[in-house]
Design a binder for these strands. Structure first.
Lengths: 233, 233
DNA sequence: CTCAATTTGTTCGTATGTATA
DNA sequence: GTATACATACGAACAAATTGA
């Protein structure tokens, strides 16, 4: 009998020892059973574990492959935590906002340094779109996500980009039912413009202030406790 | 037939709707089968997925419970990514160091503001221990981990503390076989003392510089590519 | 201490859904 | 359309761990 943990570990070892990368095919379930000496059920459960971590990826009727090694697990995990604390307080969301702000402010220098004209145009375009959509009372979540990701991409640090995406996703899901005032929306849109302006001007201090202004409305809203629209489901 | 994802989703919903928290007991596997109308195998696989995310926790012969909702999944996932890229280059580790530095520098202000005498003593004690152990050629990983965690704790942001721990853990595992020169070790130990001094003096700029100096040796080592001791296993 | 009850861990056999050739 | 390969799902039986009588 093999402990469950052991099976998953052996599959990971198989990937490492064979120098496999994302998308590479893994042996079939039957072959894996043979290789690690466990039953199908055990192997399947181990695969389930690795799938949750995006270490392996399964395509029904096709085969199992090495996964993309994304931060999907972090999103799942953090999101659930957020939803669980959602009813009582908004602490997790509050902490998450703090983390997002810290990262963007902490990278103010490198971001401003890597800023160029084409990025400026793209971000300005997004900020303008946000303003337009906000004026029409429409949501601008897509533009917001793209904005914050584009800000990070020039740094060439994939982990930072993925963490930014992950935190944004968690934030979006957990805060989904949170109501925001029209003033807050305008404030947020303005902050995006201010961020672009500061970066284009090469003004790190102004950039930091703009990021602070960007998160200020959300932080105010979170400190109010759960007001209207704060109910879950 | 129920899609695999559906079963996990229903268990999550069960936890949310019943307002359960970490440690609370879940129905037995048999009861869950009844509740979600799936076979035991399917339920077990769903539980496996949720276990990987630390949303549920299983104790053999005892029962299944709501998990601690830790960032264990992030550690697992990132660690594997690091080990996978380990053979070729050290890019993941390099990016990770950048993230750690960014967070600590980004929080320089709040950290210095929340700094007090008792924390100063604790950190100084740890830094002294590191110096002693380094002088004897011993490892000081425990002290290093504690140092970086203690630095964050006064902020009262659990997520930041857990992220710090997670990133530290990944770093420690992925960089395990990386050799460091004696000069680098001394430099690192000195940096810890400098961090304490800067924080105690309330000097944010000095704190930021000290953090930079702390990560400088590692970053140098990583830019050298894989030198002696860089081989895996 | 031993026994029995409960619960999770592991295995096997079988049937079904899905994709490729 | 058929055949093949593969993952998905189910159910039953037995093993192992924990608890309490």
């Amino acid at each position: 009998m093999l402990r469950q943990h052991e099976v998953a570990e052996r599959i990971k070892q198989y990937i490492l020892q064979n120098r496999l990368g994302p998308g590479d095919p893994l042996p079939t379930e039957a072959e894996l059973c043979d290789a690690v000496g466990a039953s199908r059920s055990s192997v399947r459960e181990a695969i389930k574990t690795l799938t949750a971590l995006d270490i392996v990826e399964v395509r029904h009727g096709h085969g199992t492959y090495v996964g993309r090694l994304s931060l999907a697990a972090l999103v799942e995990s953090l999101t659930f935590r957020g939803l669980l604390s959602r009813a009582d307080d908004l602490r997790v969301l509050s902490e998450l906002v703090e983390v997002r702000q810290t990262i963007e402010q902490g990278l103010a220098g490198p971001i401003v340094a890597a800023f160029d004209e084409s990025l400026r145009r793209e971000l300005l375009d997004l900020a303008d779109q946000m303003a337009e959509r906000a004026a029409r009372g429409e949501s601008f979540v897509e533009q917001d996500r793209e904005f914050h990701l584009l800000l990070m991409e020039p740094l060439g640090n994939e982990l930072i980009t993925q963490l930014t995406a992950a935190f944004w996703d968690v934030h979006a899901i957990v805060a989904r039912t949170l109501e925001v005032s029209p003033e807050s929306v305008r404030e947020t849109v303005d902050a995006h413009h201010a961020i672009v302006r500061a970066a284009a001007a090469g003004d790190v201090a102004a950039f930091t202030r703009a990021v602070e202004a960007h998160y200020a409305p959300v932080k105010r809203r979170l400190q109010e406790g759960r007001g209207p629209g704060g109910a879950h489901a």
